[in-house]
Design a protein around this nucleic acid. Structure first.
Lengths: 335, 335
DNA sequence: CTGAAAGCGCTAACAA
DNA sequence: TTGTTAGCGCTTTCAG
């Protein structure tokens, strides 16, 4: 029924080994033989069975990708970066959503191990002890993308979240704000709790400003929670005049919440975001935002993984990609 | 090194077949034996090799998913629907981006066949003859999601694009508009050319309105091209007063383009979109939009695929999901 | 440059 | 209820 390497060998009057050689581009084949085999392959429409190949060679040329949620633009962007580089190096990806649920992450890792992927790219809110343990026992290399592992034991690709956040808050401070709100995503996310929040606090302290817990709002990261955040603080006795938002959606929510109350951005309220997705340009005013290069993070992570799978020398397995702030209109330009 | 079914068999003093049976939940195993085997599996941390299993059983429990671009929210949404249902039925997905490039699509199909996926879910702009041919020779079932096959030969899941578009344009006509522009994505996309555009024309004709080719703008579907579309028609001698946009991004571009010129939506210009992503609520005014239920399309497509792979009876392999129009503020409410 | 043969780890008859 | 035994389709020594 399906044509196998054996059929090709028979038709071409050579051994399976020879067919295998030409299929795999092995140079030790006489050109004439190669040609003959190639013709038969063409004629019979032979297509190598990757599963059999995987079993025999112990390499599947597929990598596992575990991300929280592909329908979230952030992760989709990273996934695209991962897939592009994977394709470039002839890998396919098995993609799975974890919903940042530890149980699912653990079970997905097991599934990936079972499927004999050659490597794994993982994105997660937090590398919990259990996760850490499973990854430690992984039979294949794993690289973290946009995910911080506090033990610094795994290969990873990130930006300097602390520094980036610090700069963002500083920009607001430089514009004279004394009351700056911090609206991040959930704090069980390591990046939010350990970097964005800490940087926010440090920036305030360094500027001699006071930290007011009322202005620290860990929302879920959605547009609606941005609106809510605005609503809850705007009625304070001393409402904030600027916001550091953890994502574009949050920032847009804040802006719309303000505008709906007749407040003007950036005249009355300034907002800086942390993401810079294409949404940033699709609001009025357009968002000033720390750029989180998700595509690049994914691409670099996958590239790093290929190197590790290939057992190449890695000079630094904890890659930090440069960041910058894209200045648009939600923050006044100092001029 | 890695523990195999053979190791477990030896340790448990049973045959490989028995271990295989307990691993696969076969009931023909004495409870005591099962227990013993399970213990050894636990102790040895045995994890079945899915590749070997795939080779022996000719089933990989993985399906291929070919989509144009995962970083595009539309497809990401569908991918999530596909993956959720796949997970529910214990399948994993190999995800690949085609960029709606026929060559890539063809090559990806081949890759999927080679990887011995059990089935394929495919999204594409157009089922070209070559694509059609490859799919015809597919060794595994394929279902099209949100993509139209004019030969009606493949299983597919869609909404009634023509009817939905017709209703959208009708809504604009009902509001008294005589000059309605059609800003779709590229016309090499079958859905745009055969359904949205045709429905637009028919709605106009049925209402006794004239079709003006100047008002038909096949853009690339981005935010910026929405702005451009607005710019090009607004200076016409008789500019349009309403727009039927092929996507949310396009619609938002049109709205911002109008607002930047001091025009008000929906007072001066009305816009109806075709998508209803979460973006629809994240603009002012919020978008009135035909809802394209991408998540559902993906989910239903995957569900259909499981049935076909399972050789169940299918009453209708061309599923049409109901659609509706979500009324918000970019179109005046008739009251 | 080419072939023979031994697996890779598992499933699936077929016996027992 | 359990074991034996062929493969699944390919890669990979090892000879020659």
């Amino acid at each position: 029924m399906t044509v196998t390497i054996y059929d090709v060998a028979r038709e071409a009057n050579v051994s399976m080994a020879t067919v295998s050689r030409v299929v795999n581009g092995n140079q030790n084949v006489k050109p004439a033989t190669r040609k003959k085999v190639l013709e038969v392959i063409e004629r019979l429409e032979y297509r190598p069975n990757a599963v059999a190949r995987g079993l025999a060679s112990k390499k599947t040329t597929t990598v596992g990708v575990i991300i929280p949620d592909i329908s979230n633009n952030i992760y989709a962007e990273a996934a695209r970066g991962i897939e592009d580089i994977a394709t470039m190096y002839r890998y396919n990806i098995i993609l799975a959503n974890s919903d940042q649920n530890e149980e699912k992450e653990l079970s997905l890792l097991d599934t990936m191990y079972g499927k004999q992927v050659d490597g794994i790219v993982m994105m997660s809110d937090a590398v919990t002890p259990k996760l850490h343990q499973s990854m430690d026992h992984s039979p294949v290399p794993i690289v973290l993308a946009g995910t911080v592992d506090e033990s610094n034991q795994f290969a990873s690709v990130n930006i300097d979240y602390f520094q980036a956040s610090y700069e963002a808050v500083q920009m607001l401070i430089a514009n004279g704000h004394k009351r700056i709100a911090f609206v991040s995503g959930p704090l069980h996310n390591t990046i939010n709790s350990k970097f964005k929040l800490e940087a926010y606090k440090k920036a305030l302290i360094d500027a001699g400003l006071e930290i007011d817990e009322q202005l620290i709002l860990p929302e879920e990261g959605s547009y609606d929670s941005g609106i809510e955040a605005l609503e809850t603080v705007i009625t304070l006795e001393q409402p904030p005049t600027a916001f550091f938002a953890g994502s574009d959606e949050l920032a847009i929510g804040i802006i719309h919440g303000a505008q709906d109350r007749g407040l003007k951005v950036p005249e009355d309220i300034e907002v800086i975001s942390f993401e810079n997705s294409k949404l940033a340009r699709m609001v009025r005013p357009q968002l000033t935002s720390v750029v989180l290069p998700l595509y690049d993070i994914g691409a670099v992570a996958m590239r790093l993984l290929t190197k590790i799978m290939n057992k190449e020398e890695i000079d630094n397995q904890e890659v930090i990609i440069p960041h910058r702030i894209e200045v648009r209109d939600s923050v006044k330009t100092a001029d």
